[in-house]
């Protein structure tokens, strides 16, 4: 299982790598990173078919996370569809509702509570 983290913040990579150090080391999951939605789509094009779970920011330069969500939902309709969770600093009601309406599996706020994230990932990642 690969978790694709989409965020324009460079430091997010370091944070996730450190936070999931144990899980990476034990090969429970792999992390991939994209600095923009477009990059994420490119990654999906390249690695389509693999098991991918997307954690995406919403507010990003260029394409937004919600746009990414919509594109993924429209381009990869076959079951099982990719799991997509939105992680945003703008975790207010309109954004939440929009994300859920666009087909997000879950919606998490920043600052990110990794314990909560791991709980949410458990159903999708075997051995976590």
């Amino acid at each position: 299982m690969t978790i694709l983290v989409v965020d324009d913040e460079v430091d997010i990579k370091e944070l996730f790598l450190q936070r999931f150090r144990r899980e990476i080391r034990t090969q429970v999951l792999q992390l991939a990173f994209a600095l923009s939605a477009q990059e994420a789509l490119d990654y999906l094009d390249k690695h389509g078919g693999l098991e991918i779970l997307i954690l995406s920011d919403i507010n990003m330069p260029g394409m937004s996370g919600l746009e990414l969500l919509r594109r993924v939902r429209s381009q990869y309709p076959l079951p099982p569809p990719p799991v997509i969770m939105m992680i945003t600093a703008y975790h207010d009601s309109p954004n939440y509702q929009q994300a859920m309406a666009d087909g997000a599996n879950d919606f998490l706020g920043k600052p990110l509570d990794f314990n909560l994230l791991k709980e949410k990932l458990k159903p999708f990642v075997a051995g976590l």
Binding site: E9, D11, L15, Q18, R19, A89, Y90, D92, G109, K110, P111, L112, F114
Partner: peptide
């Protein structure tokens, strides 16, 4: 909203 992004790092990096 914006400040939550840096806070995200502060909290999580300090924790990790």
């Amino acid at each position: 909203h914006e400040i939550q992004n840096p806070l995200n790092f502060v909290n999580n990096f300090s924790e990790v």
